[in-house]
Design a protein around this nucleic acid. Structure first.
Lengths: 199, 199
DNA sequence: GGTCGAAACGGACCGCGGTCCGCTTCTATT
DNA sequence: AATAGAAGCGGACCGCGGTCCGTTTCGACC
């Protein structure tokens, strides 16, 4: 682990009561199963509650809204990604040159966002505008930019680079503009090299 | 008008029948009135139909979904913006130096997106991922970048600059990162000057 | 083990988005 | 003007997200 940053916060405080914790896990398992079987559209709140063998009120008490439930599912994989970025193998994890890690960052986020696209869309702004996730990515990239020797303010360039592989921007480029993933990464790399000092 | 680009396409083909056209206008007027009175939350499909004096089926036939209705409302103001950018007064319209027009573009989009934020959020991906709008902006900025003498590929930098004043990115910067609008524009200007050749 | 307050549970209930289909209205054609 | 048939219309109906509140369960403390 190359530094300490707050990981994505637990969106719902861990329940204290035993039954509450058990139900929480049952609900998440049911939600994952439903998505695996029938896609995001199959994730109805009634179905989740029924499959988990609990009442609907319990489900809503735990996750607030359908989008909140989705955000929790996304947080799970985000947590795994963040661990990989902080203490996993290079080039995404520590141990590789900063520029290589930056490229790995872009490729990895692109892959993740394409893989989870349906769920991210359905979660709407609840997840997409998540401050802690974006904030983590910006700090991560900013750290690597500084390590790579960027001159001047690093926060805005970091924001730019993170933004350019964010879900809405990728959708625009991949779907609307009909670009291939590798073309997107080429553009991103060019942008990175314009922002870094010429070596 | 400095060039010809396709304006935002009519989202719903103009009705041929007289009564259909009349109802369409009545529905849009009702929708605008409801939003003016009670915000986006007051825009229920039943209320729009009732206020316009037509049946619910007619409303859905015309606009497809609630989001589709919102997208139509947004298209109206977008059309006005595009006219201002193509044939309005400088610096947004033609007649000013390219760099000034680019700054005017950023400021104008920021203002527009902040003003319409609630509606844009509520419209979801129906409007936000709108290819024709984003495509228009990218072409506009790309044109100005070339006029300003950018070297190399201009499309990706144009996409970057457009993206950085898009609604989700602005929300992240203004709400989550607590930046002021002028700070955002400063960052944008810096980015622009990094992308343009040093003069 | 008994007691008690708080936390969690569950399912009836509500409002809204969206669909469906029989009825009405318009306009092209003669 | 009459006609025909396509386009438009309307509102009953449905499913799902979300709420509410009386009931149940947990576990801390005695």
């Amino acid at each position: 682990m190359d530094r300490s940053l707050p990981l994505v916060t637990a969106p719902t405080a861990a329940p204290v009561r035993r039954d509450a914790a058990r139900n929480r896990e049952a609900l998440l398992a049911a939600a994952n199963a439903l998505i695996a079987e029938g896609g995001v559209a199959a994730l109805t709140m009634d179905a989740v509650a029924c499959r988990a063998g609990v009442g609907k009120g319990t489900l809503f008490r735990r996750f607030g809204t359908r989008e909140g439930l989705m955000a929790t599912l996304l947080d799970e994989s985000e947590r795994r990604w963040q661990e990989a970025a902080m203490s996993g193998p290079p080039p995404l994890g520590p141990g590789a040159p900063a520029r290589d890690r930056l490229l790995a960052f872009a490729g990895s986020r692109l892959e993740e966002h394409v893989r989870q696209d349906a769920l991210i869309r359905a979660a709407g702004t609840t997840w997409g505008d998540n401050q802690s996730v974006i904030g983590f990515h910006v700090l991560h990239v900013r750290h690597l930019l500084l390590e790579a020797g960027i001159t001047g303010d690093a926060t805005y360039p970091a924001t730019v680079l993170v933004t350019m592989v964010s879900p809405p921007v990728l959708r625009q480029q991949l779907d609307a503009a009909r670009l291939t993933p590798s073309r997107v990464l080429t553009g991103w790399t060019d942008l990175l090299d314009r922002l870094l000092p010429a070596d």
